[in-house]
């Protein structure tokens, strides 16, 4: 009886791990169609509260460096390089927001200054500590998308 319980528990854990890692879409496996990415990168819906933190953090999204956002007016110094993101959810659908975050140049064109947050760039004199890393993780990007969807006017 006891051995059987252990077996079932182990099987569940193993299956859970496999399922979770299989659902994260690797940066080179993201399917972009008509400037949209339909499928969640993490395989799950994002958390808007976490997304708000990632958005504001200088070490993570640092989105305020370029974009103003009235929802974060308590944070000093909003940038002017990109458009303000107030009401961004009225202007873009979720799959479009995901495509812009993954690789902005594929949506806005090669001249865009916006970093590609889910692309691995090792061959542009990239500092070694950033090799094989994306700027944000799949989960962080989904959290930001969930947050952006709350920005309606």
């Amino acid at each position: 009886m006891i051995p059987r319980m252990v077996w079932i528990a182990s099987a569940c854990i193993a299956a859970g791990v496999t399922a979770a890692s299989a659902e994260v879409v690797a940066p080179d496996k993201v399917m972009m169609e008509d400037m949209t990415v339909g499928k969640s990168l993490s395989g799950q819906a994002g958390n808007p509260d976490e997304g708000r933190k990632v958005f504001a953090s200088r070490k993570l999204g640092n989105c305020l460096a370029c974009h103003a956002n009235a929802d974060l007016k308590n944070e000093l110094f909003h940038g002017q390089v990109g458009p303000p993101l107030d009401g961004v959810a009225d202007r873009w659908e979720e799959p479009q927001l995901r495509a812009i975050l993954v690789d902005s140049k594929k949506v806005f064109g090669g001249q865009s200054i916006m970093p590609s947050f889910y692309r691995i760039i090792n061959d542009q004199r990239t500092q070694e500590k950033f090799h094989n890393k994306t700027i944000l993780t799949a989960e962080q990007i989904e959290d930001i998308i969930a947050y952006l969807k709350t920005l309606k006017e």
Partner: peptide, 9 residues
């Protein structure tokens, strides 16, 4: 005009 780094600028 060459983009460099992880931030690609």
């Amino acid at each position: 005009y060459q983009r460099v780094g992880q931030l690609d600028m």
